[in-house]
Write a protein that binds this DNA or RNA. Structure first.
Lengths: 236, 236
DNA sequence: CGATTGGTTGACCGAGATCAATGGACGTGG
DNA sequence: CCACGTCCATTGATCTCGGTCAACCAATCG
């Protein structure tokens, strides 16, 4: 029995297998999608554009149509943390606080679908399935956040990188065996609580050990077993 | 303008001031409480008792009536992380996954009120105010989790300890100026991604600097300013 | 009163941070 | 097309914060 969709993600033995539980944060399925589609407008944004700033009032919620978005928190001394990367079909900005406590930025050129929060709330009021989906989506993000706390608090740099690569592989289409990495090394570091040099060293070590092959903007997994054992994940 | 209730907590200049935004995770106010009260049964548990185990099926949700509860994740090699401490009036086990991905344990002798999940769902279906409260509670926990990721990924041991003490002070009644610390040093370490020795050293350093005074099972804040500047929090 | 549990402190070590140099990919303008 | 500048990845050398191992003490509880 899988413990949660997080665990499930990392347990997947090979590229191509469909996850038993859909990844949390993905957009709603079936009829709910249609109702939502009509409410949103698609916007294109350039690489590194700020979708909203930390401290902005929260008016809108979003779904990623294409590309990769990052959620960023910064301290005034410049220390930065990326709480989440979001890919096609995943949503962000559904938290209820009136003011954003993270910035949202485009990692690469992206298209996002924007929704007015009032429209989202109205839809939740009129459609119990959508309300249920929203609650489960938030709940899933909370579980993922708890898993990430464990990673940030207790895992080594090498474990973090291996876990990250497996997560990226799990979320990507991966038609040709090359898993894309849209974000620069610095972003990977800020996501994992590491410096970019450390992220870099861990990646090249994995390559030297023939577990992965680094490509232009991505990587290929050569030895899935080596990677999973490196990640040291709990598989209940 | 405060950015979130998390930020608000740490910005509070002295013990006794009422927060502008109620702490997230607290039990619902007013009429909603009454409806919920009837559904729950109060249970007493001994110190270190397991309320539920990691991997158990999730049947119940809880509110803390008295004492302190911890949410614990463990790796099979023994590394442990505490995702959350919960105090009187705060709730846990409202996440939707069918299987718990954290254990819940009593830090000290506690009383908790248990609710059947089906009852919680029924109440949410029949009372929109309760449904709204539940969504905001989950959302608040998600924001706190994001703040904690920043702490675990980017703050120093000394910053983490100062932040932790301010959080504890903010959440406690603190009638007599002594902030209780129900949990042992090891738990503080596991909450902050530190070893217990490191937590201990950071605490005694703060005491030597006359910022706090350590007591039997708690501490007194002697120099609030020293503590907040040590915590290095963002105050928007 | 000994046994157990939790807190404190010291000595030393190592994973990851920091500082620095190099090189490749890419874009732009002449 | 080439020269130059910018951004990013990589690698090396060194340093440091926090981890590790260990001793000791105080409080609590049979």
């Amino acid at each position: 029995m899988m413990q949660s969709s997080t665990q499930e993600s990392f347990a997947r033995p090979q590229i191509g297998g469909a996850p038993a539980i859909p990844r949390t944060g993905s957009s709603p399925a079936g009829g709910v999608t249609l109702a939502l589609q009509r409410l949103g407008t698609v916007i294109s944004m350039d690489r590194n554009a700020e979708i909203w700033a930390q401290g902005n009032r929260a008016h809108s919620s979003y779904i990623v149509v294409a590309g990769c978005v990052r959620m960023v928190k910064v301290l005034e001394d410049g220390r930065r943390h990326i709480t989440e990367f979001l890919f096609e079909g995943e949503c962000f900005g559904f938290e209820t606080p009136a003011v954003h406590d993270c910035a949202a930025e485009a990692v690469e050129d992206v298209r996002v679908q924007r929704f007015r929060r009032s429209d989202i709330d109205d839809l939740a009021d009129s459609d119990p399935r959508f309300a249920r989906w929203r609650l489960e989506m938030m709940s899933g993000k909370l579980c993922l956040a708890q898993e990430r706390m464990l990673t940030l608090g207790r895992r080594t740099a090498h474990e973090r990188i291996a876990e990250f690569l497996l997560d990226m592989a799990d979320r990507a289409d991966c038609t040709n065996g090359i898993v894309p990495l849209a974000m620069p090394r610095g972003d990977i570091g800020d996501y994992l609580g590491l410096r970019l040099e450390t992220a870099c060293r861990a990646l090249t070590l994995l390559e030297r050990q023939r577990a992965i092959r680094l490509e232009r903007n991505g990587f290929a997994i050569l030895d899935w077993h080596a990677l999973t054992s490196r990640a040291n994940m709990v598989m209940h």
